[in-house]
Each structure stands twice: as structure tokens, then as C-alpha cells.
């Protein structure tokens, strides 16, 4: 096989940029899992709503700024949807056991999936990236799409923002405390229900950002929620439940093994990430980094 270093390097960067989207979504999922202990299958649907909303908003505004406005507004729409779901349904069920919560969030994802079908229809949609991010840059002999480089920059930025939020702000610290011992936080006179609601919205906002960022790279369609959510759950598990840096490590493993699979054995590329998950779980049954559970 004649695969040069340039291709390998390029594929590596593409893999990392895909990992960044996974990381943003998984950080949200992991945050919700850590603070609320809810395995939220509807997270994938929120991601899908984010992508579809990005399509609609950027088409409506159009022009050079369309995508940037969509990137700002689509996650907020996702937050509105999840606020309604949280106050109406989720907040009554936090104490149930995991199997029931999985069933419940799956039914929410069924409902959201059909709502997306009603609003946007079943056709394929696509969003073009803004002018500045079109085309590719040649880097060390490899030509890398600009949009992927943009993703590689924005992923760590979101990660740092989330880290600052959880360690430097009061509400972030309270949610971390609630993740460790929620009764104690309640005893201290803090309204735990409100903290949970806020943490849930932060997680869902991240899902929305992930959906908005993925929009220009894939064809937006129904069913993208199902493919994503299973990957996201596996990443969160191998990283360590509720651990944000674990989500980063897991996403990098998942994304990079997948892109090298595409390079070396395209037919069975999807096998490699699953294989890496199996190996990690067998070596470190409770995930790579410390879980907050």
C-alpha cells in the first residue's frame, strides 16, 4: 500500500477534528450523567435538532453571516426545547432507577425525532460553511480542509470554557458538589432542583453546539441522533462517567481510530472504534479517568 506521510497526517487531523465534535457533545452528556445521574438518550435528538436548526437559520439569514448567526442561535433553541422537557417531564423522575430512566429518555427521543420529522421533513439537508472556512490549507505537505482546522481550534476553547465554568463560577462549583453528594448540597440550603435544571440546560447547550458545528461536515438527516448517541455513550463510559477530561480522551480515541480505519481498511472502518472501546473496557473496567459516581 502506498500511503504517504502526508495522507496519514491529513487523516489524523481530520480524525481529531471529528473527535472535537464528539467531545463537545460527550462533555454535555457526561456533565448530565455526573450531576443528575441521568443516562440521557434524548441527548442525540437535541444534537440533531441543533443541526437542523442551523440549517434553517443559516438559510433564512443567508449571506456571509448566516452560519455564524446560526451557530449562536441554534444551541439556544435547543436550550429552549430542553427547558420545556426538563420542567415538564425530567424533573419528576430524577430518583428513578437507571433502567427506567433509559426507557424514559428513549421515549423522549422518539417524540423529539418525530417532531423533527414534522418540522423539517425526511429529506437530506446540507449547510455550506462560511466563506472564510471554505477550501483547504496546505500544512506540512498535506492539504487540510479549513473547516476541520477551525473545529480543532474551537474544541479546546469549548473545553476550557466548560472547565472555567465548573471550577471558577459558584453555580459550577455547586453542580460539581451535587455530583458527589446531592443530599449534602440540599442540606446546605441550596435549591437542588434548580441546580439540576441549570446543569441539564448546560449539557443540552453543548449538544446544540455540537449539532451546529457538525452541520457543514455531514448531510443532516433523521437518524443522525441514533448513530451519534451510541458513540457518545461509549465514549463517556471509556473516559470515566461524569469526567470532562475523560470525555476528551475517549473522543480522541474514538475519532482517531475511526479515521485511521478509514485510511487503512475503509470497508471495516466502523469496526475499529468499537474494538478500541472493548480493549479499554477490558483493561480498565471503570474507564480511563476517575469517574464521579
Amino acid at each position: 500500500m502506498a500511503i504517504g506521510w502526508a495522507e496519514i497526517f491529513c487523516q489524523f487531523l481530520v480524525g481529531i477534528s471529528r473527535s472535537m465534535i464528539l467531545f463537545i457533545v460527550c462533555a454535555g452528556l457526561s456533565f448530565i450523567l455526573g450531576v443528575l445521574r441521568v443516562p440521557n438518550i434524548a441527548h442525540g435528538s437535541l444534537y440533531m435538532i441543533g443541526a437542523f436548526a442551523t440549517f434553517s437559520i443559516s438559510k433564512m439569514i443567508g449571506g456571509t453571516y448566516g452560519f455564524w448567526v446560526a451557530l449562536a442561535l441554534a444551541p439556544l433553541l435547543v436550550v429552549v426545547v430542553s427547558l420545556i422537557a426538563e420542567r415538564l417531564l425530567f424533573c419528576h423522575l430524577y430518583q428513578r432507577e437507571h433502567l427506567m430512566l433509559i426507557l424514559f429518555t428513549f421515549s423522549v427521543s422518539l417524540i423529539l425525532g418525530d417532531l423533527v420529522k414534522i418540522v423539517w421533513g425526511a429529506e437530506y439537508r446540507s449547510v455550506s460553511p462560511p466563506e472564510i472556512l471554505k477550501g483547504s490549507i496546505s500544512l506540512l505537505g498535506a492539504s487540510v480542509p479549513r473547516y476541520n482546522l477551525f473545529l480543532i481550534i474551537i474544541g479546546p476553547l469549548v473545553g476550557i470554557a466548560l472547565w472555567l465554568f465548573t471550577t471558577r463560577t459558584k453555580i459550577g462549583k455547586i453542580s460539581r458538589a451535587a455530583a458527589v453528594d446531592r443530599e449534602m448540597v440540599g442540606v446546605l440550603g441550596i435549591n437542588v432542583s434548580w441546580v439540576f435544571s441549570f446543569a441539564f440546560l448546560v449539557g443540552c447547550y453543548l449538544a446544540g453546539i455540537g449539532g451546529a458545528l457538525v452541520a457543514p461536515t455531514v448531510s443532516i438527516t433523521l437518524g443522525m441522533d441514533h448513530t451519534l448517541i451510541i458513540e457518545a455513550f461509549l465514549i463517556v463510559i471509556i473516559g470515566g462517567l461524569g469526567n470532562m477530561w475523560g470525555a476528551l480522551v475517549g473522543s480522541l480515541i474514538f475519532g482517531v481510530t475511526h479515521s485511521f480505519g478509514v485510511l487503512f481498511w475503509p470497508q471495516f472502518a466502523i469496526v475499529f472504534p468499537y474494538m478500541s472501546v472493548v480493549i479499554v473496557l477490558l483493561l480498565r473496567p471503570r474507564g480511563l479517568l476517575k469517574s464521579v459516581w
Binding site: L241, F268, I270, V271, V277, V278, L281, L282
Partner: peptide, 20 residues
């Protein structure tokens, strides 16, 4: 949960092979 997730990844491995 770890039991379930390991099973999902092993099963998805099989699915991917059959699918491809």
C-alpha cells in the same frame, strides 16, 4: 451500566461486521 456498555460495543462490533 459498564456491563451494558461493554455488551453494546461487542454487539456493535458484530453488527458492523455483518453490515459491511
Amino acid at each position: 451500566l459498564y456491563f451494558g456498555m461493554l455488551q453494546i460495543s461487542l454487539g456493535s462490533l458484530l453488527w458492523a461486521i455483518v453490515f459491511r
